[in-house]
């Protein structure tokens, strides 16, 4: 699905990441951990084509990213659901329209899709909050809305960047359960987090591979996780 082959990334001439090699197989579950500023978000952006590698090759669904123009990257992105730590909503649109945004931009809004939307709102526990504007939501509601938006196009891959960063433990467990459930449905999941307790809690429920970014390189985490 997503493959990294000796990938490097430099910003303004400074090497941030180097020698990254990884294959995310269909249905796999990954955690990406590392200290703040280690490059977790940069790694995820490389995964969905928001950044281009300065060395090596990133392949999205078999296609080298450097060969894709911006439109083809957009098409590939429709197969990848992304959940950001800060969620990134259009604050002037109600929650339900934000969640339906991927349908809107891909011209798929239809009565059938509206039924899916209602089902999804129920699944993430946002029924009754459809008309609320994003600034009116709590941290947990925002994260669940972001997850619902990431799922509306039934993507094959879910990338979540610190999805539990702004929520309490109970809510982070709820979000984790949703992500594990998605993985059981066959989705490939990668969660970037520095929350080791979350990783340990997840490993008790799902077979997950834990990767750590340290010193700009990607390592497999030890047995302590």
């Amino acid at each position: 699905m997503i493959e990294f082959e000796d990938v490097a990334y430099a910003y303004s001439g400074d090497a941030l990441l180097s020698g990254l090699s990884l294959t995310m197989a269909p249905g796999s579950f990954h955690f990406l951990t590392g200290p703040s500023g280690s490059g977790k978000t940069t790694f995820l952006k490389l995964c969905y084509g928001a950044l281009r590698a300065s060395g090596g090759q990133v392949r999205l669904f078999g296609q080298p990213v450097e060969t894709l123009d911006r439109d083809r990257v957009a098409y590939a992105r429709r197969r990848i659901g992304v959940v950001h730590q800060d969620c990134q909503f259009l604050d002037h649109l109600p929650v339900i329209e934000n969640i339906a945004l991927p349908l809107t931009v891909t011209g798929q809004a239809s009565p059938d899709q509206n039924a899916n939307l209602t089902e999804l709102m129920t699944w993430v526990g946002l029924t009754g909050r459809e008309a609320a504007l994003p600034p009116e939501l709590s941290g947990g509601e925002r994260q669940r809305a972001a997850l619902a938006r990431a799922l509306i196009l039934s993507p094959e891959v879910i990338l979540a960047d610190e999805p539990t960063g702004n929520v309490d433990w109970e809510m982070s467990q709820r979000l984790l359960r949703l992500l594990i459930e998605l993985n059981r449905m066959g989705k490939t999941v990668m969660i970037a987090t520095h929350d080791l307790m979350l990783i340990r809690a997840a490993k008790a429920q799902v077979q997950a591979r834990v990767l750590r970014i340290a010193g700009g390189t990607l390592q497999t985490a030890g047995a302590d996780l």
Partner: peptide, 13 residues
């Protein structure tokens, strides 16, 4: 920011 969100959800240029 709006453009970034639209790109994130797969909007073409």
């Amino acid at each position: 920011q709006v453009i970034a969100v639209l790109r994130l959800v797969g909007a073409t240029d």
